[in-house]
């Protein structure tokens, strides 16, 4: 059997285990390619029935409009419930201190809103599109990752996880993060998107836009999220986004790749990893992702 069929079947199996083992799951959906792939897999797992979970987006308020529009359009097209909670509201209600300064990002504050939302809806499982090839702490995490009531991951106390037997039993207040595409690589996701003809936001394909050059990275000026400083150079370039996340910490790549074929060729040839090229938040320290996961990040 072709490896994409194997990966697809494994992911569908995991999604159905969530449906079978939990009372109130949710699927974390951002409008990025990995969560769009999850939605496609959920359609395969549960149609002609409804999804046994809503889609949930934690909106930092600093997202690309294209991704938000795509998110709403997709939820609408498939007729599934979408819940959106805003980091902005958490900041206001809880009087959180927002990071300030040159490379400030709200990405870390998402965790607060996510944990509040889990509490609000009593979600016992959150399905996410994280992959083990993305980052070395993620490479260590189980498919069913049990988190305590603070959402913390404890890498030293992970449950054994054998064969395709997943243990989702938890105490009240705990929740499980579930990663159905754990074993997919970036290239697998793109090959699957092409094979299945899955639509993506236009951000993933080459387009012209205004950017500023900061620390060698091309950052979008869209939405006024990043405030230009004196030494930032404003440019117009043809770029695409290899990952789509918070505007404040997602860099663009110069590219002429306007089609799926071209994007795949580009990724096959690259010598730089996905997060290394695009995510500013992972480059703070050697253990940045591990620390965020211990703090409740997905």
């Amino acid at each position: 059997m072709d490896y994409l069929d194997q990966l697809e079947s494994e992911a569908i199996h995991i999604l159905r285990e969530v449906a079978g083992q939990f009372e109130r799951p949710a699927l974390l959906f951002s409008g990025g390619k990995d969560s769009i792939t999850l939605v496609h897999l959920a359609l395969k797992a549960f149609r002609p029935g409804k999804f046994p979970f809503p889609l949930l987006h934690i909106d930092t308020g600093h997202n690309f409009q294209e991704a938000l529009d795509f998110r709403d359009e997709l939820a609408n097209r498939i007729g599934e419930r979408l819940i959106v909670r805003y980091v902005e509201d958490t900041i206001r209600i809880k009087k959180l201190k927002e990071p300030t300064g040159r490379n400030a990002t709200r990405n870390g504050l998402q965790t607060f809103t996510l944990l509040d939302t889990i509490e609000e809806f009593e979600f016992d499982a959150c399905i996410g599109g994280a992959r083990r090839d993305e980052e070395k702490a993620r490479a260590k995490e189980r498919v069913f990752s049990v988190r305590d009531e603070f959402g913390s991951w404890d890498p030293k106390r992970q449950r054994p996880e054998l064969w395709n037997l997943y243990n989702g039993r938890i105490h009240k207040g705990e929740n499980v993060r579930v990663f159905p595409i754990s074993n997919w690589t970036e290239l697998d996701v793109w090959n699957y998107i092409q094979r299945e003809n899955i639509a993506l936001p236009s951000l993933y394909f080459a387009h012209e836009r205004e950017l500023l050059v900061r620390d060698g990275k091309l950052m979008a000026t869209a939405g006024g999220v990043i405030k230009p400083e004196a030494d930032d150079q404003l440019v117009t370039r043809t770029v695409r986004f290899r990952t789509v996340g918070d505007i404040s910490c997602t860099a663009a790549s110069e590219s002429e790749a306007g089609t799926l074929d071209a994007v795949i060729a580009e990724i096959q040839a690259t010598r730089i990893s996905e997060r290394g090229e695009t995510r500013m938040d992972d480059q703070l320290s050697e253990a940045a992702m591990e620390d965020r996961k211990k703090g409740g990040y997905f």
């Binding site: 980052e135 070395k136 702490a137 993620r138 490479a139 260590k140 890498p155 030293k156 992970q158 050697e286 253990a287 591990e290």
Partner: peptide, 14 residues
């Protein structure tokens, strides 16, 4: 060795 404690001790834990 992806975990901080693995790198510190130079062993694989998980």
């Amino acid at each position: 060795d992806g975990l901080r404690s693995e790198r510190e001790q130079g062993i694989t834990i998980d």
